[in-house]
Nucleic acid binder design. Structure first.
Lengths: 224, 224
DNA sequence: GCGGATAATATGTATATACTTAATAACGCC
DNA sequence: GGCGTTATTAAGTATATACATATTATCCGC
């Protein structure tokens, strides 16, 4: 009657009521059955809509407890992790890649915490955009997983995505000062503030630990 | 037969096949009806499971085109945005708050791009954890939205969440060098590399633009 | 062979129904 | 009143069915 029964319309109507404070923070909202009747749709449709909002942190749902608008919503932001080359192409720039180092050695404590003790394959490479340094990849690999694949022309980043992707892992952002090596590779001054992304990937066993350090000014954008 | 028909079990089984490369990158997987029959459940259950994997970037689905394992998966990571005070409490530390400045003035170009021209209320505040500087909040507010609420004791961060939350916005991470003010507030040296989070929030009109600069070493963790 | 209309198809969604589960509320006992 | 048991409730899930919608594939006329 009111114009539609799709779950997205139900979600939008719920969102409107939240924003208009018809449903104020702390409030318990009508249950699914009541909303279904009011909006003229099935309960499953309301369920889908409210579940969607709950996943975004805009509602809190509990069995028997009903659904309520959180007093202090914990919004969730998502960002996409693509291959670096794709990232650069998406910016309309020409991607480049240069292998800087590839040796087996003992890793620092920070890496050993994630990858375990024992010698690891240490690969460093520079990704460029339109010829300029874009991102320095500092990667430690489990030799048992990668064997002796060459990363001369194909970045480890790309090889991993195509071969041992779909694994679990953790990810964190932080800031690091540019070392002499970073300054040289990324074309900035030593000590400059750079954005870094640490990522750890493992399947059954640890696979890789990587730190990507981006050129000055780089921003990683997320969507709410 | 095989042990269960819940959508999470279907999802896990699909994930297992992807990881085991039974379904290899580029492959088209069986359609929902076939999987439903094979796994002994309803098509809607399979749909729920595969939709979940597609949202995580582990599958690509298209009407008529079927479902396939992406050649270069674009994984999605999510992180939660809570009130800073809650963030600090979650670390087991005692949160503190000190208002540093609150004046109406013209904003720099970067902020005007998001908030429009005209004078804005500029609020700066320091969040502390166990007494030490944790995060400097540099916020520009639309006076038409906030009026003359006092942020002496309640952080703007918290006031906004409780009053104009549920709005749209953008969010980005980057790195900045510590200015003299930042160094003083966060207890570090001038020029130190610091993680910054820029966030823009708007409803019908621009509401606020904020930059949170964290103390040295701070990491923002995301989940895959 | 090419382009455009047409058919086929896999996913997307809506619905009624039924049952499960977690959490709260009610009850009754002491 | 305090406490443990039981009943109730609202969300969570599963299912069959039906129809919608985007594509892809096919067919046909030229």
């Amino acid at each position: 009657m009111s114009g539609g029964t799709g779950w997205q319309e139900v979600r939008d109507e719920a969102l409107r009521r939240i924003r208009a404070r018809l449903w104020a923070p702390g409030d318990r909202i009508p249950d699914e059955a009541a909303l279904a009747e009011e909006l003229g749709c099935a309960r499953a449709t309301v369920n889908r809509a409210l579940r969607d909002l709950a996943e975004a942190g805009l509602l809190e749902r509990r069995r028997k407890g009903g659904t309520r608008v959180p007093l202090t919503p914990v919004r969730k932001a998502t960002f996409s992790i693509a291959i670096i080359r794709q990232d650069i192409e998406a910016r309309g720039q020409v991607p480049g890649y240069r292998l800087l180092g590839d040796i087996v050695e003992d890793a620092p404590a920070e890496v050993r915490a994630a990858m375990g003790d024992g010698p690891l394959r240490h690969v460093t490479a520079l990704h460029t955009a339109d010829g300029a340094g874009f991102c320095l990849e500092d990667r430690w690999l489990n030799p048992a997983v990668v064997g002796d694949v060459s990363f001369e022309t194909l970045s480890a980043n790309e090889w991993l995505v195509g071969n041992v992707s779909f694994a679990e892992g953790t990810l964190a952002f932080h800031a690091v000062p540019a070392t002499a090596e970073l300054a040289r590779a990324l074309g900035c001054k030593e000590g400059d503030a750079l954005l870094a992304l640490d990522r750890e990937t493992r399947g059954e066993v640890p696979i890789t630990w990587v730190r990507l350090v981006y050129a000055p000014g780089h921003r990683v954008q997320a969507a709410l």
